[in-house]
Design a protein around this nucleic acid. Structure first.
Length: 285
DNA sequence: CACTTGACCTGTCCGC
DNA sequence: TGCGGACAGGTCAAGT
């Protein structure tokens, strides 16, 4: 499911609720979903929740780390020990477990009775243990591109990143996590629409001003995604089980055959790198 | 080097 | 109602 805005939405919500909780046990219902030794986390307290690209990290007091990748259908749902009744929140644990039992892969139970559920219909996602943050950086974070929303990420960084791949279609490059992290199929389409750039255009064909426009558009749609609490096409929910609203404001994604909001032309869908790519052929040249 | 395809999985939706 | 195929916020590896 999730791209940067979805993972960031979960990170913020989880950070509020899970920091300082102590692990009582970790139950694993699908072996491939948890890579590591669950015993190693007994009695450890959560120190921080962080994000790197589309991955989420849980940092414990002894510096041990759990890294989580939700891939296409992963969900992380936090159910507090004492739950206020709220229509949009999952408040009945038994009902919740009955409803989602087929998709629950891992449950982390904390010593105050609250639980963190890792659900994953397609089983592509994973939770992986690292003895330290440094080890996670060495093994999986190190060869990722820069964070597009960091203050120190400049237009020059962006331009240099892209120019390594002149022959590549811009949409494919935007989604390449080695060049820049966090952008997937939804936000790449939206950023290119805002920048009025055709998704198949090669990087070497882009003008300086187009790259600048794309730099701004990319950050704008990611921030919009966070403001809308993510995009929920099918699976995405935040840590409280609530859907995001980004697709209500999306301009092209999943709008094939519908009129472009700018020019009225019908939105088209082409397959690029095996992925649906939505765009307006009149606005995006 | 750049692009395509298949693999990993389960579930839903649509047309016949 | 059933059956088959297409498709789904991601990423790898292998083949062309």
């Amino acid at each position: 499911m999730p791209e940067l805005p979805e993972v960031e939405t979960i990170r913020m919500g989880l950070k509020e609720q899970a920091v300082n909780l102590k692990v009582l046990k970790i139950d694993i219902y699908n072996q491939k979903s948890f890579q590591g030794n669950p015993q190693n986390f007994f009695n450890l307290t959560i120190k921080d929740i962080f994000r790197r690209g589309k991955m989420l990290g849980i940092e414990f007091e002894n510096d041990r780390v759990l890294v989580i990748h939700l891939k296409m259908s992963g969900q992380l749902i936090f159910v507090p020990s004492k739950i206020k009744k709220n229509r949009s929140t999952i408040y009945n644990l038994k009902r919740y477990e009955a409803l989602f039992h087929k998709q629950i892969r891992v449950i982390i139970t904390f010593d105050n009775g609250s639980k963190l559920y890792f659900n994953d219909q397609r089983k592509f996602g994973w939770i992986r243990e690292f003895p330290s943050l440094q080890k996670a950086i060495d093994d999986i974070f190190g060869n990722l591109g820069p964070e597009p929303l960091e203050d120190n990420f400049s237009f020059d960084d962006f331009r240099r990143s892209l120019q390594k791949r002149g022959k590549t279609a811009i949409k494919v490059a935007l989604m390449d996590q080695h060049l820049i992290v966090g952008i997937g199929n939804i936000y790449s389409s939206e950023a290119l629409f805002l920048a009025r750039i055709n998704p198949v255009k090669k990087i070497e064909q882009l003008s300086q001003s187009e790259i600048k426009k794309l730099f701004d558009s990319m950050r704008k749609v990611l921030l919009m995604g966070i403001a809308q609490k993510g995009a929920s096409r099918s699976h995405f929910v935040n840590e409280r089980g609530e859907k995001g609203n980004f697709l209500n404001v999306a301009k092209v994604y999943n709008r094939e055959g519908k009129p472009c909001f700018t020019c009225g032309n019908l939105i088209e869908n082409i397959i690029l790198n095996g992925r649906s790519s939505f765009y307006c052929s009149r606005c995006q040249m």
